[in-house]
Nucleic acid binder design. Structure first.
Lengths: 155, 155
DNA sequence: GGTTCCACTGGGCAATCTGTTCAGTGGAAG
DNA sequence: CTTCCACTGAACAGATTGCCCAGTGGAACC
């Protein structure tokens, strides 16, 4: 797409106070309402803003344990494994990757003990040769995009 | 916290159409506006809803390559490395983990070639013994929470 | 120089939503 | 039988939204 400084500031404002409306946005940016509206529309239809989903904290839902599992898949079974993993609610995210593992997935569980259950369920399908799991202890940098936005807007 | 079916449906609705207001929410849930309002407030102040940040797509910003890097850290250098990584815009997320690696971070880059630059910058600090990177090819399950919400609400 | 295009401004309008308050209902707990 | 609590349904003023329009200024093009 292409993002200029105004778009960048708009995204920052939205990130800080997501529930503010277009009017308030335009006031803080110092532009006319129509402009803020237009920029927002452009960012949304251009795919830069994918949505405004509520960010749900799994920990607050009773799933305080996060882990990443690297899965090694038997040749040709990828599709089955993908479909299987998609049915497991505790699988929050799944990627296929290059490198020694073939897939990487983010899991949550109610406890370390419960993680065992989740992993059993994850690997409970033909096609997974090996799984190695890393439990998350700390999350020094939670998922963020603003620094990237700032960089994309400045260049 | 604790989530009942109504909270669950509310979160689902919000996930589908995040810009709808409380009034519309209450209509679709078939409850009074005050109720929807109260539920939403409870979820927000209870930490279940962390926010409504705009979800920015790095790909649309010009960063279509995603990778996960596993970092092995020299004893006692953790804090320095964390601080360093926090300054790199292309580091979207950072976790400290158990297992063979000590940290796992999510990176984005403008291209595979650009990824080299990012990784050089990431490892350009004392304290990182080894880094192994897996480039993401596909993302069969993008970050999601709704299935988990549904499970938490049903039990 | 003259013309066209485009983003932006600033304004106005009706319709809608928000924040807030209030009285009343029904179920659960004591 | 009483208290508590979540929910309902309604009301109100004030703010916001979606929409439309005329005017301005800069950049690109002829």
């Amino acid at each position: 797409m292409g993002i200029d400084r105004l778009d960048g500031r708009l995204l920052e404002l939205l990130a800080e106070e997501p529930r503010i409306g277009v009017l308030e946005l335009s006031r803080r940016l110092g532009v006319a309402r129509g402009t803020a509206q237009a920029r927002l529309d452009r960012l949304t239809s251009g795919g830069v803003i994918r949505g405004f989903g509520p960010e749900v904290d799994p920990a607050a839902l009773g799933y305080p344990v996060t882990a990443f599992a690297t899965l090694e898949i038997k040749q040709g079974q990828g599709a089955d494994v993908r479909a299987h993993l998609a049915t497991v609610p505790e699988v929050l995210e799944l990627h296929t990757t290059t490198g020694s593992g073939d897939m990487l997935c983010r899991l949550v569980a109610r406890s370390n003990a419960d993680l065992q259950r989740v992993i059993d369920r994850v690997v409970g399908i033909e096609g997974i040769v090996r799984a190695s799991t890393a439990i998350v202890m700390e999350n020094p940098v939670p998922l963020r995009v603003i620094p990237l936005v700032r960089q994309a807007a400045t260049e």
